[in-house]
Design a protein around this nucleic acid. Structure first.
Length: 687
DNA sequence: AGGCCTCGAGTTCC
DNA sequence: CTCGAGGCCT
């Protein structure tokens, strides 16, 4: 039998099908070309039926000759077998977020900051583009071939969604052109067009399945499918707008040129973009897009401005997690009005009493909202929100419901003012609000107050703490109510028999929970410290403590001075840690947890002879041999801190040639003054 | 003393 | 995400 019989005569052009290798290569290239025309250029080059015929021909060829199957074959877009879970991928260059602005004055302030940063009075050129309502994705291309795709995640680590991304037809599996970079991380947004979203929801309706609230959720849900065959049936799109790691090619000079380069390589770039001058240009781009917004085939929640020249972007740099050279100019969030049916309070794990508005259900941005936090008593007064009021609600950052304001015209005579209860609704202890503080707290503590106990236990098992899978709110609630668990140590005393008493807890789930508990026993010191839930000690402070002390005993025996020497810990936090550690109940808890088998790799206390810990230095003038930053690094390595200005708290001023006002100030304040030799001498000493 | 930045804590809905 | 508060710089 000849290969001809298999494939019939429908796709008549190209190499003769008797040479199956050439035939496959030709199909491969043609399908890529047509898909590009269709999905990227939005300009179909052949009828759909013809495309489908060529597609199935290639599929059969690959089935008959597996050696033809390459990762960049168009047939790989149909999806493969489900994954057990997504694996984590660390981004080589973090995927940061962009600061938001809403008002004209925010935009003027942004432009001013940029010009100040660049030290120029000239009008800055900005690249303007759309802010899509989708998911940020990093696509890795190696020598032009798509090798990996990851979600943004927390910006530093995302999830591997390569199998799903391969099914997105507008994403090239292979880039066009010669001289492609060795490694290139293309960044952009995966989104679902409005029309595709409507069709998907129609299908979901017909199949009796749940509809998606909005295109963004649909896109997110589709991309997070473990079974990429499902993703393949969802019409996702992609637009590129940024770059991460780049090797083996020069970065273009401007953002505009970067996007043009992408376009030339076959990477889809949105056509709604422009380069403008100055703040006036930004505002006019914004209003022209605002006018078009409803007609666009996809949803956007604003526009993005970026300084066009990449060298200028470099000069501006970053503040914490956001670039100084970019701004998201967002449209006002969708708002709705509803009625406050009640104002209740919740007790957090620290005892914080938070008023929460119970709202008549209302749809905001496709999601039904029934609760909204009012933060604290002052906030309720400031916004003058009463029970029975009609209020305006929006979702802050399109996620968390927020009561914006009440509608005074609709105020009822019977509207009831919120009164902070004097006793905790859960345990009856007094609620106290320290002067000068915004939050009121239940004075019960976790021993007395079940709400605080539950909160503390939930914190203990949470992902960033002990990470005990399967222990959620429901289960903790039950365990506490039935008296099976009072302290975190009790989790590790649970057995199969005890668990079998619980609702919805058969043999299988009980065993899973015990396995998860067992697994959590192997942890890190930082997680353990964080899990304890010491006030003012969050993830970051717990890490600093773990690094500084190295092992738990060193921390347990630490003096106030030692704790104060840890970076970013001041008197308030230090006192809170000491209070916690000196409480016999807590020491007993820690002892029990250790007995139950929780363990981690014990390290040595930070050994870089921290003899300058707690000391602050100010450098002034030119030192004879050391550069300024070298001296600073040496001081910091010994645990000292380098600050820019002299104050009472300064321990030493290191003065070189041509020292100026700082030296005078030091003399005035009686601060010790060192020369370079004196500094080196101090660094040498080890005690 | 005042302002910036970072961290902690609480929160919603699916 | 937002607010408040702590820590540190100017």
């Amino acid at each position: 039998m000849s290969q001809n019989d298999l494939f019939g005569g429908d796709a008549a052009t190209g190499p003769d099908s008797s040479d199956w290798r050439a035939r496959a290569e030709w199909l491969h290239a043609e399908l890529h070309r047509h898909a590009h025309a269709y999905y990227v250029l939005d300009n179909p080059s052949i009828p759909d039926a013809e495309y489908d015929a060529m597609f199935s021909e290639l599929q059969s060829l690959e089935a008959a000759h597996p050696e033809l199957l390459t990762p960049d074959s168009p047939t790989q877009r149909v999806g493969g077998t489900p994954l057990p879970e997504f694996s984590q991928i660390a981004h080589d260059v973090p995927m940061l977020s962009i600061n938001n602005g809403f008002l004209e004055e925010d935009i003027l302030a942004f432009d001013k900051r940029v010009r100040d940063g660049l030290e120029t009075d000239a009008e800055v050129r900005y690249a303007c583009e759309l802010k899509f309502d989708g998911l940020a994705i990093n696509l890795r291309y190696e020598k032009g071939v798509l090798t990996q795709a990851a979600t943004r995640g927390d910006g530093y680590t995302g999830e591997d969604v390569t199998a799903n991304i391969r099914t997105v037809r507008s994403i090239p599996l292979r880039l066009q052109g010669d001289s492609l970079p060795e490694v290139m991380d293309v960044r952009g947004e995966v989104l679902m067009f409005k029309a595709d979203f409507q069709r998907l929801n129609q299908r979901q309706r017909d199949a009796g399945q749940k509809e998606f609230a909005n295109p963004r959720n649909a896109a997110a849900g589709s991309l997070r499918q473990l079974d990429s065959r499902i993703t393949a049936q969802r019409s996702l799109r992609f637009f590129a707008y940024g770059i991460g790691r780049l090797e083996g090619a020069a970065l273009p000079a401007t953002h505009e040129a970067l996007l043009d380069w992408y376009s030339a390589m076959g990477v889809p770039v949105c056509a709604e973009r422009a380069v403008v001058s100055g703040a006036a240009g930004l505002l006019s781009f914004f209003s022209s897009i605002a006018t078009k917004r409803a007609q666009l085939p996809y949803e956007i929640d604003g526009v993005i401005y970026k300084v066009n020249r990449l060298d200028q972007q470099g000069v501006l740099g970053f503040v914490s997690r956001a670039p100084r050279f970019a701004l998201a100019h967002k449209f006002p969030a969708e708002e709705a009005t509803t009625v406050v049916q009640d104002i209740v309070v919740q007790i957090g794990r620290t005892g914080a009493v938070t008023p929460v508005a119970r709202l008549a259900p209302v749809s905001v941005g496709g999601v039904t909202v029934t609760n909204a936090t009012l933060h604290n008593e002052d906030e309720v007064r400031r916004k003058d929100i009463r029970i029975g009021d009609t209020v305006i609600v929006r979702r802050a950052g399109d996620v968390i419901p927020e009561v914006v304001a009440n509608v005074p015209e609709r105020r009822l005579a019977a509207a009831l003012e919120f009164v902070m209860p004097s006793e905790c609704p859960v345990c009856g202890s007094a609620i106290v609000r320290p002067e000068e503080e915004a939050v009121a707290r239940c004075s019960g503590g976790w021993v007395t107050c079940a709400a605080q106990r539950k909160g503390g236990l939930l914190h203990f098992v949470s992902r960033r703490a002990m990470d005990i899978e399967g222990l959620g709110e429901q289960l903790v609630e039950q365990l506490v109510d039935r008296g099976l668990v009072t302290t975190p140590a009790d989790f590790y005393k649970l057995g199969l028999v005890m668990l079998s008493e619980l609702d919805r807890m058969a043999q299988k789930s009980a065993q899973n929970l015990l396995d998860a508990l067992e697994k959590s026993k192997s942890t890190t010191l930082a997680r353990f410290i964080y899990a304890l839930g010491i006030r003012h000690v969050g993830e970051s402070t717990a890490k600093s403590l773990a690094k500084y002390f190295g092992n738990l005993d060193a921390l347990l025996d630490a003096s106030e001075e030692q704790i104060l020497a840890v970076d970013d810990i001041g008197p308030v936090v230090a006192q809170s840690i000491l209070n916690f550690l000196h409480d016999p109940i807590n020491r007993e808890l820690i002892a029990q947890l250790r007995v139950s088998g929780i363990h981690w790799e014990e390290g040595e206390p930070e050994q870089r002879s921290q003899h300058l810990a707690g000391k602050t230095f100010v450098l002034t003038g030119t030192l004879p041999t050391l550069k300024r930053d070298e001296a600073a690094a040496m001081i910091e390595a010994a645990g000292g801190k380098v600050s820019g200005s002299v104050s009472k708290k300064t321990s030493y001023v290191v003065a070189g040639e041509e020292a100026g006002s700082k030296l005078a100030k030091a003399e005035e304040l009686g601060v010790a003054i060192l020369d370079e030799a004196g500094l080196l001498n101090l660094l040498e000493q080890t005690t």
